[in-house]
Design a protein around this nucleic acid. Structure first.
Lengths: 224, 224
DNA sequence: ATATCTTTTTACGATTTGCGTAAAAAATGT
DNA sequence: ACATTTTTTACGCAAATCGTAAAAAGATAT
C-alpha cells in the first residue's frame, strides 16, 4: 500500500469558492493546487501530478470538457470531478462520458464535497496496492510486454485486452467496456471476449499475473 | 391515455423564484398554484389535485419533509420535487425515502427544471395507459381495494407492496426500492419481499391482476 | 392469557444466467 | 499455400435469482 495520496488540483475562476476549498482541504492535510483558468492549468500542471481534479464546468474561455480530455491524455487514473452551477442531464452525461468520475452541482457544501472526495480517494489509494505498473514495460508496437526480464508476446486483441485491464487497475472491467475498446473492428461479442481472456490467461500465467473474474461484473487483473 | 396533465403546485417562500417559475410554466400552458408557506398550502390545496409538486426544503416554520408526507397521505402518485439550496447526501436520501421523486439543488435553471418536470410528466401520463387506475379504487385505511365490484383485502405489507407496484406501472420495481418503502420498519430482507409477493399474487389472481417477475430487475404488475 | 392474524425467517429445489473451455470455421497476413 | 489470428459455436459447470412451503417470531384482539 502506497502512502495515502492527498493532492487536489482545483480549476475554478470564482475566487471565493476556490479560496474556501483551499482553506478547507489544507486544514485536512491536503496539498492544494489552484488555477483560475484553463491556460494557467495547461501551462503549470506537472505531468506526473496524481490526485483529485476539481474542474469548474463554466470557466470563461475554455470548456470544462476540454480540460477533462486533456487530463485524461496524461493521467488515466486520477479521479476527476466536474463542478457546475447549472447542469442538465445532458451535460452530466457528456461530462461523465468524456472521462469525469463524478459531478457536483453548485452550490455544494464543503462537507458534501469532502464525502465524495474521500470516496474517490479510497478507491484511488487501493489502486496502487494492486499491480505496480513499474514492473511492467509495455511494447505497443510489438504487442508484447516485459516483466522481470522475460518477454511475453501477445496477439493484437490480447494486447489491448491486457492493456485495458491494466489501465483500470482495481476496478473490474465489464465485457461491455471491453467491447467498446474493440469498437472500431465492429464485430466482437461478449462471448468472444471470454475466449481472448482464456488465451491471455494462459500466456500471462508464466509472469505470475492472473485475471480474476468478478461474477456478473467483468474481469480484473492482479498479481499473484 | 388520459389528456395530458399540466398542473404544477409550488410551495416556495422566496417570491422571486416563485414568480419566475409561475411565469415560465404559465408560458408553457401549465396551471400554476403558488403557496408561500406550509400553512397556506395545507389550508387551500384541493384533495384531488393531480400534477407536479415543487416543495422548497428550507421553508420557515415547517420542514419540507412534513409537507411531502402530507402530500403522500392523499396523493400517492403525483411526482414530488424537493428543492433546496444546500443539500447533503443525507438530506437527499431523507427526502427521497419520505416520498419525493426527485430533488433539485438551488439555484437551478428553469430549463433544467423543465427537463426534469417533463420527464416526470411523461412517466406520469404513461401511468394511465397501463392498468387503468380508474378500475381500481384504493382503500388505504382498510388495506384493501375494490376492482369490478369485488373487494380484495390485503395485509398492510401486501397493500404497500401492491400500491408501490401500481405507482410505478410499466417499470419494474426492484427489491431494493421495495425495501426502502418499508424502511421505517427497518427489518426487511429481499427474501422477505418474495414471500409477500407470493401471497399477494394469490390474492389478486381473483381480480385478473398478476405480478410479473423481471429477472434480475424486480417485479411489475400487469392486468391479464 | 390464548387464539388468530400478520410478518419474518429459513430451507431447498427449480430456473436462469454467467462463465470456462475446447474445437471448428472464418478471416487475415506472409 | 501456409501459418497465425480471430470469430463462432457448442456444451457443461457454477453461481445467482426466484418460487414455494413450512416453521418461527411478533403483534393484536378477544
Amino acid at each position: 500500500m502506497l502512502a495515502e495520496v492527498k493532492n487536489i488540483c482545483v480549476i475554478e475562476d470564482e475566487v471565493d469558492i476556490a479560496d474556501s476549498i483551499k482553506f478547507y482541504f489544507e486544514a485536512n492535510d491536503f496539498k492544494v493546487l489552484l488555477f483560475q483558468n484553463a491556460e494557467d492549468f495547461y501551462q503549470d500542471i506537472s505531468d506526473d501530478f496524481k490526485g483529485i481534479y476539481l474542474v469548474d464546468w463554466n470557466l470563461p474561455g475554455a470548456q470544462g470538457i476540454d480540460i477533462i480530455k486533456r487530463i485524461r491524455q496524461t493521467d488515466k487514473v486520477s479521479p476527476v470531478f466536474m463542478v457546475s452551477a447549472f447542469s442538465t442531464q445532458d451535460q452530466i452525461i457528456e461530462g461523465l462520458s468524456s472521462g469525469a468520475d463524478d459531478y457536483i452541482t453548485k452550490p455544494f457544501s464543503l462537507e458534501e464535497l469532502k464525502v465524495r472526495v474521500s470516496n474517490s480517494l479510497r478507491k484511488f489509494s487501493i489502486v496502487d496496492s494492486q499491480i505496480s505498473k513499474g514492473k511492467i514495460q509495455l511494447l505497443p508496437e510489438a504487442n508484447s510486454f516485459i516483466i522481470e526480464g522475460q518477454t511475453i508476446s501477445l496477439t493484437s486483441r490480447e494486447y489491448t485486452l491486457f492493456n485495458t485491464l491494466l489501465e483500470s487497475e482495481g476496478e473490474p472491467v465489464s465485457r461491455e467496456q471491453l467491447i467498446e475498446k474493440f469498437a472500431n473492428d465492429e464485430k466482437i461479442t461478449a462471448r468472444n471476449i471470454d475466449v481472448h481472456v482464456f488465451s491471455l490467461r494462459k500466456k500471462i500465467k508464466a509472469a505470475n499475473l492472473l485475471i480474476e473474474t468478478v461474477w456478473g461484473k467483468g474481469y480484473k487483473i492482479v498479481e499473484l
